[in-house]
C-alpha cells in the first residue's frame, strides 16, 4: 500500500467520522496536562531553593547570552515542527521529512548547548551536590533536557518511518502527536528560561 493510498483512506475515514473525537489525541493532551504538574512541582522546588547556594555559586554563574541563543534555537524548532505538520496535512511527505529533520537537528543543537552549559557550570563549581540550588537547577533543566532528547528520538523515528511512507494519521504515533509533545517541551522551556534564568540574573 502506498502512502497516497493510505492517507486517502485515512482522509476518507476522518471525513466519515468528522465529529468523532480522536482518542489518541485526547490521551496526549491528558499526558501533557499531567506533565504541566510535573514541571510545576520542579519549578516550585527550584524557587524554594534558589537562594540556598551554600558556598557554591548561584545564578551569577549563568551565561545569559548563551542561554538566550539556545532558547531561540528551541523556539524556532517549534516553527519547523508546525511546518512539518502542515506539509504532512497537504500530503507533501518529502517537505514534511525536511522540516522534521530540521526540527531534530535544532533539538540536537539545543541539547549540545545544554551539555556545554552544564560542563561550564561544573567547572565553575556548581555540581549536583554543591547546594540545594545546584540540585534543584540540574534536576529541573536536566529533566527538561531528557524530554528534549526523547523528542529528538521520536522525530528521528518519524523521519526513518517516513522514508518508506510508514507514517499516516491512524498510526499510534503520528506527526501531529509528536508535534504536540515537541511544542510542549518548547513552552516548558519558555517558563524555565523566564523563571530560572531571566528573573534570577
Amino acid at each position: 500500500m502506498t502512502l497516497s493510498e493510505m492517507t486517502a483512506g485515512t482522509a476518507g475515514h476522518e471525513a466519515e467520522h468528522h465529529d468523532v473525537i480522536p482518542i489518541r489525541k485526547v490521551a496526549v493532551w491528558v499526558f501533557l496536562a499531567s506533565e504541566c504538574m510535573f514541571f510545576g512541582a520542579m519549578i516550585s522546588t527550584f524557587l524554594l531553593y534558589r537562594s540556598t547556594t551554600g558556598d557554591g555559586p548561584g545564578a551569577e554563574i549563568f551565561n545569559l547570552a548563551f542561554t538566550s541563543a539556545s532558547s531561540f534555537v528551541l523556539l524556532m524548532s517549534s516553527l519547523t515542527m508546525v511546518l512539518a505538520h502542515h506539509a504532512y496535512e497537504r500530503r507533501d511527505l518529502r517537505q514534511a521529512r525536511v522540516w522534521l529533520t530540521g526540527t531534530g537537528l535544532l533539538g540536537i543543537t539545543f541539547l549540545s548547548g545544554q551539555i556545554f552549559e552544564f560542563t561550564e557550570f561544573v567547572h565553575g563549581g556548581l555540581k549536583l551536590s554543591t547546594s540545594p540550588f545546584g540540585s534543584a537547577f540540574y534536576m529541573l533543566t536536566g529533566f527538561h533536557g531528557a524530554h528534549v532528547a526523547i523528542g529528538v528520538l521520536m522525530l528521528l523515528g518519524m523521519v526513518i518511518l517516513s522514508l518508506d511512507g510508514r507514517i499516516y494519521a491512524r498510526r499510534g504515533l503520528n506527526i501531529e502527536l509528536v508535534g504536540l509533545y515537541w511544542h510542549f517541551v518548547d513552552i516548558v522551556w519558555i517558563v524555565i528560561f523566564t523563571v530560572v534564568y531571566l528573573l534570577q540574573v
Binding site: 496536562a33 499531567s34 516550585s44 522546588t45
Partner: peptide, 18 residues
C-alpha cells in the same frame, strides 16, 4: 479544557508549595 486543568493544577501546586 483538558490542558487548562493541568495548567491550573500546576499553578495551584506552585502557590500551595510556596
Amino acid at each position: 479544557n483538558v490542558f487548562f486543568v493541568g495548567l491550573l493544577g500546576a499553578l495551584l501546586l506552585f502557590v500551595v508549595v510556596l
